[in-house]
Design a protein around this nucleic acid. Structure first.
Length: 369
DNA sequence: GATGCGTGGTA
DNA sequence: TTACCAAGCAT
């Protein structure tokens, strides 16, 4: 061992965080990804509106999926005042396909809160940001650091993974979060808070990936406890997930002339606030009593499509049998909904499930009434 | 702390 | 094909 091994060891023990942040930021200066919502490394001007919008869209959503939506939203609503004044139905339709639709409802609520309670400017403080709709522990810290340069510890799935590996934390998630949060706090520098946050996420997204981490090109390899183990990818340890149940149900495709009947779903719950065709209740399959027979909304010449529409949600899978019918305009009298031109379904903003239903229904010619 | 909440890509 | 995963939040 070199003569100064004791000194080296002790200094690494005292301030390993500064070394880690320094190495990571140096790497970020050379390799930062170019993203539509991101300023160049070191830039001190970042539009909080664009940071906020991107962070909401990126919750549990990949960069590739977000980019076209981010472009569409910033073109249509260039600032928080414009978004606060947006037509809610139009915004929900613009969000269609991105998923987790509560984010879209909270997006408007948040923009309106910023205009009403904060003079139209996002607050820089993480705790204040945290009180806004749709802004939680991670997003508030990320906005505070990225848009305002404040020191804040933003722990998303990337940071969680990087930190668990750096310190070989093997306490299973989600229980291990407190330990990981503390370790993340320990390596967060005071300066360049926004760059550090984004550098951690870039590292997790491009090098310290979940499946096959590219340790060979990692700037933190020498500091990484997991790298010194046989299997760095074994971190973080996660609790086993529950099996997802299968549900079945019926969907009603009701045509009148060139129109189809659409309804807006309740604000709460699955696909809340989104347009779709009416459906039956969805029941867990394999209950032993067989599939329930269709309970049509009204009498008519219904035709069942041969193949059900299958869709996988986060926590269950679904098979919907689509029943089509031609009917008079007043067949849905008393129900809350609208006749929508089939030729203009793209503008209805259907979530993916109902897009599949529409595609399946329009593949077949309906019998005359 | 556990559960509900979308979608598309990947191995 | 199945299972996991991705810049989480609200309840």
């Amino acid at each position: 061992m070199p003569v100064d091994s004791k000194l080296t060891a002790s200094s690494e023990k005292l301030i390993p965080e500064k070394q880690i942040a320094g190495k990571l930021l140096a790497h970020y200066d050379r390799h930062a990804r170019t993203l539509p919502w991101r300023a160049p490394p070191g830039a001190n001007a970042t539009d909080p509106y664009r940071v906020w919008l991107s962070e909401i869209m990126l919750q549990q959503t990949t960069v590739a999926a977000v980019i076209p939506y981010f472009q569409k939203f910033t073109t249509r609503w260039p600032d928080v005042s414009a978004l606060a004044a947006a037509d809610e139905a139009e915004l929900m339709a613009a969000w269609a396909g991105l998923g987790y639709y509560a984010r879209a409802r909270n997006l408007i609520a948040c923009a309106r809160a910023v205009v009403r309670d904060h003079d139209g400017a996002f607050p820089p403080d993480a705790d204040t940001l945290r009180s806004l709709p749709g802004v939680g522990a991670y997003t508030s810290a990320a906005i505070s650091a990225i848009a305002f340069g404040r020191r804040a510890v933003a722990v998303d799935a990337n940071v969680e993974r990087v930190v668990a590996r750096l310190f070989a934390i093997d306490t299973p998630l989600p229980g291990g979060r407190r330990e990981i949060d503390a370790a993340a706090d320990g390596i967060t520098p005071d300066a360049r808070a926004g760059d550090f946050t984004q550098a951690m996420m870039d590292l997790g997204a491009t090098i310290c990936t979940s499946r096959k981490p590219a340790c060979g090109i990692c700037p933190l390899r020498e500091d990484c406890a997991a790298f010194r183990t046989a299997d760095p990818a074994a971190f973080p340890v996660k609790a086993a997930k529950k099996a997802k149940p299968h549900r079945t149900g019926h969907a009603w495709w009701i045509e009148n002339g060139g129109d189809v009947w659409l309804e807006r779903r309740p604000d709460k719950g699955l696909l809340g606030g989104m347009r779709g065709v009416p459906t039956s209740v969805w029941r867990v399959a394999g209950g032993g009593e067989g599939d329930s027979p269709p309970d049509y909304p009204f009498a008519g010449r219904w035709t069942a499509l041969s193949d059900p529409v299958v869709h996988i949600f986060t926590h269950f899978s679904l098979a919907l049998t689509v029943h089509t019918v031609r009917a008079e305009r007043d067949c849905m009298a008393g129900r809350d909904g609208e006749w929508w031109p089939k030729a203009d379904l793209a503008s209805a903003g259907l979530p993916t499930l109902f897009g599949k239903v529409a595609a399946a229904a329009m593949r077949e010619e309906l019998p005359c009434p």
